[in-house]
Design a protein around this nucleic acid. Structure first.
Lengths: 334, 334
DNA sequence: AGCAGAAATTTGAACGATCAAACTCTGCGT
DNA sequence: ACGCAGAGTTTGATCGTTCAAATTTCTGCT
């Protein structure tokens, strides 16, 4: 295999200089058409391709975005993140960006890795996921000057409207609201099956149910379990044997929904159950679920980072209102 | 934020030259201890970090491995690949390697993207997945000189033992053999629920069942469906109403297993069903399944690429016997 | 034809690291 | 005292690209 051709080789072949070749590639409008033609032919003839590493060094830009791939935890919920990674990879490709994935065991390790990648010009920007209250990553990355977008709202009250922090999230409340409204078709009592209070995401989803119940002047109760099938199943069993009377269940996750369905099957009862995340399990078992639309999240993330059509990471815009995106989820009825 | 320090800055601070700093980092054993000490202090004081892009250009090595992230297709089976990607990302990190993911719609696009990444020194090696008979990628990548390992055997007969092609795969037959042996505890008739013939993976899994039946002098039949829950359910329903008599089911995938379970539930029958892939759905529904051990596959892939302990992509070894790894899956009984 | 000014193109330098070769220093044997 | 080997350290060149400044070529006008 011959050595890959460089700009210099192309230049020699086309009878021009290095820089002219560079201009054809980067600022074609300043090159005379005839010259451009000749250079393009040479590029084609030699099969020239830009050497990305050299470009990086010179431009101090890598056209690469970093995203953490959490250790695989099993269970259902990781699937949403995986779908998001798939989607962002596709859309990034279309915009000429690459995705670098890295592993980290905790937030400190994540920050260390991001700093390393950023300072070594390996990434131009980062996407962080799973934000939590007073997330230290926000301040840290800001201080380093690394552009980033989070998939997930900052759950601290202060900065949720701060346009310096770019974020995209799914409107969980809208999802459970739609689910509850749909469930109310089965009767006037809809139970919310959620997680213990305290997580921003969980509280948000509960709020949607609450609002729908209130608006429809309907009735409903709350059932709580940790996010695992066995625990959900146990909680549901307990509720059923305590004489739970309800017309439908709206759940904060598909894990809870599966647990509830298993308990219902054991008790030989049938009840509409609506999950959240629209995982393959929901699809396989055929119960309704709220779809987070990771595709749309991916599109929105790139838009915040690179502008509506840009192909480089844009300097962060500071106008309020354009720094966030709240994606409306979609109820998939089965 | 001040400009990141370079080797030159460190050298000045320590009162030595560029190259000595480089030596401290790359070949510390040739530097006098006192000097090394001073340099390390300077590195620490300035917070120096190697500039990865410059290193790449000079060394023509990126310490990055590329892997395709297929478009998300939904369904259950993609999960195994995702788990593998998670695992390889973790192990690669530990060895100082990075993972670059890229999207491609088909094999041609995949090859185009890989060539681009390889020629631009963006990746040192690639991992390809989902190999099929007469896979054009093998020849193409070989011709380009890009080191690669495939997750999945080359299913053409010629090259399966060819040590020039590095591969790791899961021993599907061993998985279904174990599953069948376990299932035979429930009675002497075990049905295999598989895919239409022709796929290497599917035929391999069927073979394991076949062998176990033969070795135990037991009986069994075959049931066939495409890999989707609804089609599996329909096939199972048809079989049941045709009077299927069997003691257990060994399935080629969890999708088939779920379909079978749903049909069984409809028919109010209970039968041991063993799936394949050990997806979250199997865990959630509590049926046994064969676990592919993506962790072990990841370890094996890196070992083929980098040697047992190396931290760079090693030149390909050509000895027969050390170029492949067949991972034994594990039956998870529930 | 001559000239100013714009347009097109070329040359030199830089990005930050590492390799290869040249150089300096130390200790030892003669 | 001198030369020499070898360890330790420095200098010059290089990887492929792009920016900035310098140079050449073209265009329109008198």
């Amino acid at each position: 295999m011959a050595k890959a051709p460089t700009v210099e080789d192309v230049a020699a072949h086309a009878g021009v200089s290095r820089q002219t070749v560079s201009n054809v590639l980067n600022t074609p409008e300043i090159v005379r058409p005839a010259t451009k033609e000749r250079v393009l032919e040479a590029i084609d003839a030699l099969g020239y391709r830009r050497h990305a590493a050299a470009r990086r060094l010179r431009l101090r830009r890598s056209s690469t975005i970093g995203i953490r791939l959490d250790p695989y935890v099993g269970g259902i919920s990781g699937v949403v993140l995986d779908r998001f990674v798939h989607a962002i990879t596709e859309h990034a490709s279309e915009r000429g960006m690459r995705m670098l994935v890295y592993a980290a065991r905790d937030t400190d390790e994540e920050l260390a890795r991001l700093s390393e990648l950023w300072e070594g010009s390996e990434i131009d920007a980062a996407i962080i996921t799973g934000t939590f209250r007073d997330d230290p990553r926000v301040g840290h990355l800001d201080a380093e000057g690394l552009p980033f977008v989070s998939f997930g709202r900052p759950w601290g009250e202060d900065d949720i409207a701060d346009p310096r922090h770019l974020w995209v999230d799914v409107d969980g409340a809208a999802g459970t609201r739609a689910a509850t409204q749909h469930a109310l078709g089965a009767g006037g009592h809809v139970t919310f099956f959620g997680w213990p209070s305290g997580s921003g995401t969980g509280d948000d989803r509960e709020r949607g149910w609450q609002e729908a119940i209130r608006d429809a002047a309907a009735r409903g109760g709350r059932l709580i379990a940790e996010d695992s099938v066995p625990q959900a199943r146990a909680a549901m069993e307990a509720a059923l044997s305590a004489g739970l009377e309800t017309d439908a269940l709206v759940c904060a996750s598909d894990s809870l929904a599966v647990g509830a369905l298993l308990a219902l099957a054991d008790a030989r009862r049938v009840l509409p159950v609506i999950g959240f995340d629209n995982t393959p399990t929901a699809e396989a078992l055929g119960f309704s679920s709220v779809e987070q639309r990771p595709e749309d999240v991916a599109t929105a993330v790139l838009e915040l980072l690179m502008g509506p059509t840009g192909d480089v990471v844009a300097p962060r815009r500071l106008e309020a209102g354009s720094a966030h995106a709240l994606i409306a989820p979609e109820l998939v009825v089965r």
